[in-house]
Design a protein around this nucleic acid. Structure first.
Length: 212
DNA sequence: GCCAACGTTGGC
DNA sequence: GCCAACGTTGGC
């Protein structure tokens, strides 16, 4: 399985002095937004703290994962053995926490195509194995290698996802942005995270949009 | 611990 | 291709 990330963010590269000079000309950095993603990365608090709380009996929770269809699309998942894949390549701590500490067996997950036209939620999959260490993070030959991680003390994790069904019709980012019911979706509020929570109400709203 | 200088994601 | 909005690194 290939990493979902274009490049391993853990791969350190030498600084380029050219770019450094270019950046000096830029205006002073703007103030941070009121809700940086780091705020959501701690199970203890933040708007999405509920994702990590104990569950009611039989409670199912909902998530969204992103992938570039060029790298690994919905059709790749459908063609995979048992229509199942290791969701490896997550190299962001907030996303890792949602994946490792939030996702549980049987949870349902929207499959979102990013960096494509149009970007859209295209299918539904299911968590069939809860978080376990991502071997690509401790493989020096792999682009997703992270020297700070080790088999004894892994930093990065993956889950197994199995395709359940495609959406009746893709729900595009434009549709999501127009929907009042989806205005607070984590996908919109922390757009760069590759793993985000979805509330039950948002889940229903996306399904309804897909059938509309 | 602060902060400037990066690097990355991903929509547009 | 541009660039906003992040996350990370490393000098101090």
């Amino acid at each position: 399985m290939k990493s979902r990330a274009k490049k391993g963010s853990a791969v350190k590269k030498p600084a380029t002095t050219k770019k450094a000079a270019a950046r000096k000309k830029k205006a002073a950095p703007k103030a941070r937004s009121a809700t940086p993603a780091s705020q959501f990365s701690t199970p203890a608090g933040g708007p999405w703290g509920k994702c990590f709380l104990p569950r009611a009996n039989g409670e199912k929770r909902y998530w969204l994962v992103k992938s570039e269809p060029e790298t690994f699309g919905w059709s790749d998942l459908v063609r995979a053995q048992h229509q199942t894949t290791h969701w490896d390549g997550v190299r962001n701590h907030a996303a890792r926490n949602f994946l490792r500490d939030g996702m549980r067996h049987g949870d349902l997950v929207f499959f979102y195509h990013s960096s494509t036209d149009p970007s859209a939620i295209v299918g539904i999959c299911e968590v069939v194995r809860e978080a376990y260490p991502d071997p690509t993070a401790v493989d020096p030959a792999h682009p997703g290698y992270d020297p700070d991680s080790s088999p004894a003390k892994p930093t990065w994790f993956m889950v197994d996802l199995r395709a359940v069904e495609p959406l009746p019709a893709p729900v595009t980012l434009a549709m999501i942005k127009k929907s009042r019911a989806l205005a607070q979706m984590a996908l919109l509020r922390v757009g760069r995270l590759s793993v985000t929570p979805v509330t039950p109400a948002e889940w229903k709203a996306v399904i309804a949009l897909s059938r509309a």
